[in-house]
């Protein structure tokens, strides 16, 4: 626990002085929010503005959770400190727990910026929300992102191309999880893949709480998301053990 807290503290300090982190937390979600507002604001269905405002925040939350966590490990590789990180007695999973948790919390700030730019720049506000379901769905969304981020993080030390893949697939997650439009419009085989990702269910619940016509099955969505979160966390810890063992056996950490 102490090691995870120290890792979180260190990650926070590194992110504060890292200009690239501001791209994920502030600049990128702002740009995506503005783009979506230009597209959705003139819509004949004003409630859809929620997809621009919350969707912009979600892009920031995902970007900081996963891409910055991966980029952080890639930076360790570049700086020559990845070996020390892997070689120290503290398990990598504990260190990444702290790092990813910090990134998730920083990513939450993107929602404030999205709401701000919608109000100041476009004089738009979120549609009335159903308070209780919205709060539960929002918290579960944060946990879901954390779980997926943790499950994918062990890939980064194993191969240097992994961050390129992560960066390239960023928009794929937006599509699969329904960040800015409902997944119900996607082909059924794509929806089947979407259903395996915990954020899909929490984001659906989040938009339902803003009055979007996506159903009202909160209980079922939350339960599915929670089960998937447990599975992803279990996969994460198993995958971390595999990654550490593999790195030691191959001895190819820096150039992997």
């Amino acid at each position: 626990m102490r090691a995870a807290l120290r890792a979180a503290e260190m990650q926070l300090k590194l992110q504060v002085i890292n200009p690239f982190a501001y791209l994920g937390v502030a600049i990128y979600p702002l740009i995506m929010t503005v783009l979506a507002l230009f597209l959705l604001a003139p819509s004949s269905q004003p409630g859809r503005i929620a997809y621009a405002i919350l969707g912009g925040g979600l892009t920031g939350l995902w970007g900081t959770t996963y891409v910055d966590a991966g980029n952080g490990l890639n930076t360790e590789r570049w700086m020559g400190t990845l070996e020390q990180l892997m070689g120290c007695p503290t398990p990598l999973s504990v260190i990444m727990l702290g790092k990813v948790a910090t990134n998730v919390l920083l990513g939450v700030g993107a929602f404030g910026l999205s709401i701000g730019v919608a109000f100041i720049g476009f004089h738009r506000v979120l549609p009335p929300v159903d308070g209780g379901p919205f709060a539960v769905s929002f918290l579960l969304t944060i946990v879901a992102f954390f779980a997926v981020g943790m499950a994918l993080a062990p890939i980064f030390p194993l191969a240097r191309w992994s961050f390129t893949i992560a960066n390239g697939a960023e928009a794929l997650i937006y599509i699969l999880c329904g960040f800015m439009f409902p997944t119900t419009g996607l082909p059924s085989w794509v929806q089947a893949i979407s259903s395996l990702l915990p954020p899909t269910w929490t984001i659906r619940a989040l938009y339902a709480a803003t009055g979007q016509p996506v159903g009202r099955d909160y209980g079922q969505w939350w339960l599915t998301a929670t089960l998937l979160i447990v599975v992803y966390v279990a996969i994460a810890f198993a995958f971390f053990r595999f990654a550490e063992a593999r790195a030691r056996v191959s001895g190819q950490l820096a150039r992997a």
């Binding site: 979506a36 997809y51 928009a171 996607l186």
Partner: peptide, 11 residues
Amino acid sequence: IFLVQLGTFAT
């Protein structure tokens, strides 16, 4: 794909 889907959802 993301931007085309977003665009068609909006317009």
